[in-house]
Structure formats: C-alpha cells, structure tokens
C-alpha cells in the first residue's frame, strides 16, 4: 500500500471515530444527518458483498470492511437511541434532515445498471455503492446549509471524510504509475465527483466561516 492510500484509510477511520465517540460520550447529535448515515450503511453493505464470496485479499482489507459495515450500523443505532434520550435534538434533526434521498438511491441504481464492470449481482451492487457514496454526503451538506451554522462535530467529520476522498485520487495515480495496477475508471470518476462535492463545501466553508459568519451552501 502506498502512503496516500494509508493516509486516506486512516482519515476515513478517523471521521467515523470522531462521529462515533462524540455521539457516544456527549449524546450530542446536533447537525448530524440521519439520512446520510443510513446511506453509508447501504454503501458499505452493497460494496462489501465480496466478504460473502470468501475472496481473500488481506487481513487488513477484511477487518476494515467489517469495521466499516458494523460502525455505520452502530452510528444509526446510536442516532435512533437519541429518539428517547435526547428527544428534542432528535426531533430537530428529523425536521432539518429533509433532503429527498429517493432521487439519490434511484439515480445510483440507474447509473449502476448502466456503468459496471460486469453485469453480475455483486458487480452491479459494487457500482451502486460507489455511485451512492459519491453523493451520500448531500443530505448532510443540505442540512448544514439549512441550519446556516455548523457544529464543530459536523465540520470535523466532513473535513476528515473530504480528506479521505481527496487522498484516494493521488493513490489511484500512484497505483497506476508506480504499481502498474489497472486504472479503475468507475472508482476514479465517482471518486472525483465526490471530492468535488467536498471541495465545494470547503470553498464555501472557507469563505463564510474563516472570513466570518455562518455556513450556507447554494
């Protein structure tokens, strides 16, 4: 594994741990989008179906996949628990979390049927997961734009996620140039789309927050 890939995976891990630990220790869910978190469960479950085929890549690979699936489910469980333990914040979250995810799911399904490496269930599911991941952050960004100001939890979380996506791009170039691996067009295209979404967010964040004021997205 190259340095970009390791750094990317670590920041992905960090983003999840930031979210998990904060919700767990403070019971604070302010500014978190339940819809984005549910989408990530779907992303990981549909992507890592190869765990069932027992196609072994490495211990690292398997452990990370199991961690991503289980932690994403656990985050949704924690958010659901807030329904009882932090009812006011939960109601506010549901109210603000009003992005229509049907379009994201439908769009990803259509794109997966059109663009995939092979027309098998596992490969179409993999393609669905990369398309869905590229846009899964939209409900979260939408929520942020509606609330007008961002919690430090959300900012740290989105920042770590954005860093992970950005680092995958030099990783792919490294793989292609240095490791002579096949260039995976689908992963690259969806990865670039995703990184552009984040960079748009950071651009606005920089303009509005660093230079004073709240966060609002177009």
């Amino acid at each position: 594994m190259n340095p970009f890939r390791i750094a990317a995976d670590l920041s992905h891990l960090a983003s999840i741990l930031i979210l998990l630990r904060t919700i767990q220790t403070t019971n604070c869910i302010d500014g978190v989008s339940l819809k984005t978190q549910v989408l990530y469960v779907l992303v990981f479950v549909s992507r890592y179906l190869d765990l069932l085929t027992l196609h072994w890549i490495s211990l690292y690979n398997t452990l990370m996949k199991v961690f991503f699936i289980s932690s994403s489910i656990y985050i949704v469980v924690l958010l659901q628990r807030a329904k009882v333990s932090n009812a006011v914040a939960y109601k506010e979250m549901i109210l603000k979390d009003s992005f229509k995810i049907g379009y994201l799911l439908g769009g990803s399904a259509v794109l997966a049927l059109l663009f995939n490496e092979r027309f098998t269930f596992i490969d179409v599911a993999w393609s669905f997961s990369v398309w869905l991941e590229s846009i899964a952050i939209l409900p979260q960004l939408f929520m942020l734009s509606k609330s007008g100001k961002a919690q430090s939890l959300t900012i740290h979380y989105i920042f770590a996620l954005g860093l992970y996506r950005a680092l995958y791009i030099p990783n792919w170039i490294w793989r292609w140039l240095v490791e002579n691996k096949n260039f995976q067009k689908l992963a690259f295209v969806t990865g670039v789309i995703q990184t552009l979404l984040y960079s748009d967010f950071f651009y606005i964040y920089y303009k509005k927050v660093i230079k004073g004021g709240g966060v609002s997205l177009p």
């Binding site: 190869d50 196609h55 690979n61 991503f68 490969d123």
Partner: peptide
C-alpha cells in the same frame, strides 16, 4: 472478461 474484478480498495 470472465474473471471477477478485484477490489482491493475500501
């Protein structure tokens, strides 16, 4: 091709 694509990335 008939061989399954290998996704060694996460």
């Amino acid at each position: 091709s008939n061989t399954a694509p290998v996704h060694d990335e996460l």
